[in-house]
Amino acid sequence: MLKMRVIPCLDVAAGRVVKGVNFVDLVDAGDPVEQARLYDQEGADELCFLDITASSENRDTLYDVVAHTAEQCFMPLTVGGGVRTLDDIRKLLLAGADKTSINTAAVARPQFVAEAAEKFGSQCIVVAIDAKQSGPDKWEVFTHGGRRGTGIDAIAWARRVTASGAGELLVTSMDRDGTKRGFDIALTKAVSDAVSVPVIASGGVGNLQHLVEGIRDGHATAVLAASIFHFGTYRIADAKAALREAGIPVR
């Protein structure tokens, strides 16, 4: 049986781990490679790095971090942030990433998703959708780390990028990110039910019950969280235990 995944996320800027609270007020909190190794030992199902500065001058730092992580952690690694070209994807895969996540570049040029999927396979193309509620059961796609609205409907966008070859969607609620109030379950469920590919729920986890809700009620097959793990509030094993307790299959 396929197990539901718990994915700790490390927000990385200039090679250091930071944690966004509504994408501002960044708090420096460590070395990404050390963090990754800890999560690996603790039984995380995957790791996610999001390069939140994603400016071109810091790009090589990111490749180094990915490479050093891949040398020490024999588990799946998704890297996103600033992925704009097929060459960006190739460099990340060569450094040791297994999947790359695309956000702004997909919105800027939707054909990029199709090109990336054809070149590297759908299984390594994650489209990150940052969405903010715009009305009852309506969400708008945001780009540039949540700073720029696009006017695009998030559910329609999810369908479109999936049809283009995205292999997975990382759905983050901009309303919930950093709030610790839990995932936007309505958003997660609306996207999960609209597409055939796996959906990772993201944004807003404050306790373990939120992880349960993301899978049970949001129909996600993976849950992503940063601060609850990063600051040691909960361990990966606590998350697995809570999911198991709720009858959700975990490793």
Binding site: L2, M4, R5, D45, K99, C124, E168
Partner: peptide, 30 residues
């Protein structure tokens, strides 16, 4: 689809390269 994540191996034949891996062991698929 994709089949993505950790799933449990069921063996149909013994093999030296799979020796010591228990039935039901998790492996990562994508």
């Amino acid at each position: 689809i994709p089949h993505m994540g950790w799933n449990q191996l069921q063996f149909h034949a013994g093999h030296p390269v799979l020796a010591g891996i228990a039935p039901g062991a998790h492996a990562y698929f994508v």
